[in-house]
Design a protein around this nucleic acid. Structure first.
Lengths: 236, 236
DNA sequence: CGGTACGTTGAGTCATATCAACCATAGTGG
DNA sequence: CCACTATGGTTGATATGACTCAACGTACCG
């Protein structure tokens, strides 16, 4: 059936569209990936890989959204980051040569390419520019992690929730009605902020009372960005 | 005066002793660093660089201990990590080409070498093995940051304090009387754990009552590692 | 000797977690 | 087609961990 046919994305085209790190590769190198990659499709809830497992490659997202999280000892998830088209995940484990320190689960149905670790390593060895870009990427992520640590350690849940909402706006954007372009359960929101589900619910409805957001089920409409910024920021 | 003379360390010897990342460089490359580096000495309390500033190089620690921290909006420090002999700092900003996302301050009097950014970049371009090791390093730090995020988000202050103590034991070791080989103020401890100074004081004295530690001023003696592990770990 | 930085303790408060009950929705199987 | 179950959302009541504020002790330093 036509509607079930899937076009396996070409890396060069995908890199151009999404701005993935592969844009720093030569045409020949991209072809290599194209040839050796494995195209996969996942649906909401599917797991790409589990924390603690050894991974033989990494993933490049072509379509959809994935959450990357760690599991605390009581089973509670802490969401570390999201991956969207153009992002790569699991490269950390591949490069540090450690078992996966996170799990990855699909939030929105995905098309992804799985790329063997050896290719990554070989490109690092042969294409110094690509290596540098990868370093840039990991160092940038490290900077973000540092900020996140400071936020969680010092800000209140209320401040963090406002901040996360703004972060999601930045990362996923708003549709033409100012609805957030990513749909999360309250629990998932709580697992980013690092709080209890009930707290998110209460704070969200406070935000609603204060005309900062509107809520339609899981859809969140951003009504007052300045207000959220004010809450998320400062010397409070 | 003899006792004020300082021997500028040779990178090859230092790398051998400390296991710094420079051990992955060729003799010729190490010589280059030796030639272009700038040797500096700092005393407790000195600042190496400030958050937000552009840095033209990075630092390799030869002697001493440095804390790397972010400043929250109310001025409260969040300690991100420590650097000890063999560690490099500020490479993150150099590589991601961003302003420093942290400040660095001396905890124990230091000898460090300042190395221009260009050298780092050029070695990445010419020595792919070195690039790979740097990637390993940054990815490893990223993994640690992720764990830290999860801990702060999910564990209690009590659990985190116990964990941090064990972390410090691992990183800096104990002397022959089981005293922790790093000396921190209560405030600094609080700024790692992400809590208030008073909370650290109270918890430490609880730990003391429970025979887990002994306290002599800033010196902390670890009396019962298993006990601390039990507190830090698990399902509460 | 006074000053500054650090450490300690107590008391009170508040944000947030926890526990519990209940509703809504959708998918499942008989 | 309907009960059944699971999952997610909401609200209220209650408990408590941790912060804040304040006072005071201690030690070192010029």
């Amino acid at each position: 059936m036509k509607q079930n046919e899937v076009h396996i994305p070409f890396c060069d085209k995908c890199a151009l569209q999404t701005g993935s790190i592969f844009k720093h590769l030569s045409g020949e190198e991209v072809d290599q990936i194209n040839y050796q990659k494995e195209f996969r499709q996942y649906r909401r809830g599917d797991i790409l890989y589990h924390e603690g497992s050894r991974i033989s490659g990494f993933y490049c997202i072509n379509k959809g959204i994935i959450k990357v999280f760690k599991t605390g000892l009581d089973g509670k998830e802490q969401i570390i980051r999201f991956a969207k088209p153009g992002d790569i995940i699991a490269y950390r484990s591949v490069l540090s040569n450690e078992p996966a320190c996170t799990s990855a689960k699909v939030i929105e149905d995905c098309n992804v390419c799985f790329i063997p670790a050896e290719i990554l390593i070989s490109f690092i060895k042969t294409n110094s520019n690509f290596a540098l870009e990868l370093l840039k990427l990991s160092c940038h992520e490290l900077g973000e992690a540092n900020s996140f640590i400071t936020d969680i350690a010092q800000k209140t849940v209320r401040e963090r929730l406002a901040e996360i909402l703004l972060f999601l706006v930045n990362d996923f954007g708003l549709d033409n009605q100012d609805y957030l372009q990513i749909t999360l359960t309250r629990e998932e929101l709580a697992n980013i902020v690092g709080t209890a589900t009930e707290s998110v619910i209460r704070l969200l409805s406070e935000f609603k009372s204060d005309r900062l957001v509107e809520l339609n089920g899981r859809k969140i409409r951003i009504m007052n960005r300045k207000g959220l910024e004010k809450i998320s920021n400062v010397f409070n």
